[in-house]
Structure formats: C-alpha cells, structure tokens
Write a protein that binds this DNA or RNA. Sequence first.
DNA 1: TATATTAATCGTATATTTGCGATATAAGAT
DNA 2: ATCTTATATCGCAAATATACGATTAATATA
Lengths: 111, 111
Amino acid sequence: MAIHKKEEFTQKEQDLAAFAKAISHPARIAILNVLATKNECICGEIVAILPLAQSTVSQHLKELKNAGLIDGETDGPRSCYCINWKAFEKFFGEFNSLFNKLKIKNEKACC
Amino acid sequence: MAIHKKEEFTQKEQDLAAFAKAISHPARIAILNVLATKNECICGEIVAILPLAQSTVSQHLKELKNAGLIDGETDGPRSCYCINWKAFEKFFGEFNSLFNKLKIKNEKACC
DNA sequence: TATATTAATCGTATATTTGCGATATAAGAT
DNA sequence: ATCTTATATCGCAAATATACGATTAATATA
C-alpha cells in the first residue's frame, strides 16, 4: 500500500522536503532563473521562454507560489511574478544548519 | 499526454532539479540528518530511527546514492553510509550562483 | 456591448514515486 | 554445511506529478 508517511517526520524535515520538492523540476528552476535575472516578469514572458504549454507553465507557477517561493500579483489581464527572497534565505539557512553540524571533523570512518 | 520534457532544459537546470529531487522527501532529509550528525552510519541504525520498513529505507538510501549525495561501503554483511560533502558544496554553490544574480537591486516592480 | 487578450482552472492520460511484503544475496557464526 | 543476520532487490498497489487541450474568468479595447 502506498500510505504516505510524511506526517511521521518532524515539521522541519517536512518543510525542507517541501522546499526541495518545489525546486525539483527543471521547469521550475528555469522559471526561478528568469525571475532572478529580470527581478519581475509577467507570465506570458515565461511561457514564451519555456518549452511548455501555457497551462503547464501556469501549473508550475502555482506550485512555486503555493510553496511560498514566489509572489504573484494581478496587473490587468496579466500576472506579474517575482521571487520571495526571504523564503530562499530561510530555507538555505536551515539547510546550512542541518548540514554543517559535523562538516569539520570529517574523519571518514568507513567511506 | 505525459511526455516528459525534462531533456529540453539546460544540463545545469536538470542537475539542480535532480539534486533537489533527491532531498525532496522527509525520509531522505532525516537520513542525511542522521549521517551529518554521526558522520557514518550502518543501514540498520537508520532503519531503527525512521518510521519506515527496511526495504523502503534501503530504497531511499539507493536514491541518495544514485544522486551522488552519499557514499556507501559494504562491511561484511552490513552497509556503511556517509555524506558526500563535496557534492553538497557543489550544488549549494550552484544554487547560490543562480539565485544571487540580482538579489541586490531588489526594487520590487510589481510584487 | 461585443471582442480580444491574458492567465487560471478543469479534465484526463500517462509516468513516476512511495511503501510494503516476499524473496534473494552475502557474509559471519555454529 | 547450515543457520543467522543484515541488506538489497523484486513485484505490486496506491498516491502524486507531469503535460496538454479545452474551457472559464477577468480585464482591456473597439
């Protein structure tokens, strides 16, 4: 059976995993790259750049927004998106605190 | 249709997405956390900590290994795992170079 | 008001992931 | 040689993700 057991892990583990999941598709990396370069961008520009249908891009944007990694604002009939830098700082900081525990004494016991 | 279009993105985008995907599950975050804390660890210890069956943990370990994030070594009938710190440094460095492009002039045009 | 334009949502097909039990493999112990 | 222990792999069921076309919604513009 495929009962998902994600709830059985700590909140921090779930949060970090959710962040990683949000950026775990090349299309979403590409979107973030565009936004990081242009600072702000309307949906249509992203659709024009990516090799995906408009509905698919919209879906990826929604996922990034749900994960809190980007902000979006309606501007007439178009939508403007930009990166939520604070969210990125938060998550990268948490990854650092998670992986920098021992990084120093790297004695290599078995591998 | 669900034809996967991942190949249509740049290699860097695919690599970063693959790294993120490897750490996109709380179980794998938990495994990495254990390894980062203990420096090295045999499979059985991880199985004892996680709320998952042995076969499932083994599968998660395999994914982390395939992604190059951990190294594993057979030691008699047991397997010893540890984090591949170089891989982490590489990926975190690439994320930084990707997202620090513009971080400075954060004028906020629309959102 | 009617008509474009832009983006979000719905429905659906296919692919991938997650998880477990059962089985296989491999090394050490008896 | 047989048995135990530790781990990997196989096979399957259920859940999620990916992608698209079609439709809807919302705002401009004629």
